[in-house]
Design a protein around this nucleic acid. Structure first.
Length: 273
DNA sequence: GTCCAGGCATGCA
DNA sequence: TGCATGCATGGA
């Protein structure tokens, strides 16, 4: 990976296996919007970013080296060798063709609080409407970054809200989960900062104790927000995929089950009824 | 109008 | 332990 600083943009070359469409619009993150020129704009970690891909290089527009090194390099998991990971996963027959077709999916390292909230909202919901609800949440309670961009609101800010406030942004029956979650995290009753250091099983158990968090939401939060690449979320789409693995997950998934899962999830949504 | 979505809590057997 | 049910809402 090589980074060059041009004016107010960073040009990053040498990053393999990062397709913006597949990674930013595949149901793991809900705050990226595709622009007319094919680039993506979004907010994460308190930063606004427009990112494009030109001639195989990644263009981080209006981004400082400080923000890149301090946040985005980890967010996009740029130090992990996805090329080697894909080579391993292709030992599985279904993934072999799937990775050929959809090469370039990465697992983003999202912030724990945002990921947990987002996937509580995601339950029994579709991706378009999840994005709609989260967009309303950020616009109403996030920090204004200008240009119509807002940060994901903190637990402290959301702890000030009532159930009715969450219902007003369209959260539906999940409003009561969000209301309690925000207050518990803000008060320290739930400590998200310690979860990353736990084992997968202990971390999962801790998340399952949260009101409104079941096995699916817990695994999504673990994979997308807490860095557990072994977490393997199974939703209605993945239940259909699991018929292809009647004897359990193949050996080559070990340790990177979550990356395998994201390819299979994408394949299912495009190929299964 | 009906059906469905990155499910969960609850009650009951 | 497992299964049935209710739950909000917007798009197809």
């Amino acid at each position: 990976m090589e980074i060059k600083n041009f004016d107010n943009s960073l040009v990053v070359s040498g990053v393999e296996c990062l397709d913006l469409d597949l990674t930013l619009d595949c149901g793991q993150a809900f705050r990226w919007e595709k622009q007319e020129d094919g680039s993506y704009s979004g907010v994460a970690g308190g930063y606004f970013l427009n990112i494009a891909k030109e001639n195989g290089n990644l263009i981080f527009n209006n981004t400082s080296m400080e923000a890149f090194e301090g946040f985005w390099i980890n967010y996009f998991d740029l130090n992990r060798d996805y090329k080697a990971i894909c080579r391993t996963l292709k030992e599985d027959e279904l993934l072999s063709s799937t990775i050929d077709e959809y090469y370039g999916i990465r697992i983003l390292n999202q912030e724990p609080w945002e990921a947990l909230c987002s996937f509580v909202i995601s339950q029994q919901n579709n991706i378009k409407r999840i994005k709609l609800i989260i967009s309303r949440l950020c616009r109403a309670y996030g920090e204004d970054l200008g240009g119509g961009n807002y940060t994901f609101p903190s637990a402290e800010r959301l702890a000030e809200l009532s159930v009715a406030d969450f219902e007003a942004i369209g959260a539906g029956y999940r409003a009561k989960y969000l209301e309690k979650l925000a207050k518990d995290v803000a008060s320290g009753n739930i400590d998200l900062s310690k979860i990353k250091s736990l084992s997968l099983e202990e971390a999962r158990k801790a998340l399952l104790d949260i009101y409104g968090v079941g096995i699916k939401v817990a695994n999504c939060a673990l994979l997308f927000g807490f860095g557990f690449l072994s977490a393997f979320p199974v939703d209605v789409w993945m239940k259909r995929v699991m018929e292809y693995y009647p004897n359990g997950l193949p050996e080559c998934f070990t340790g990177i089950e979550g990356i395998a899962q994201q390819y299979l999830f994408h394949w299912a949504r495009n190929n299964l009824k």
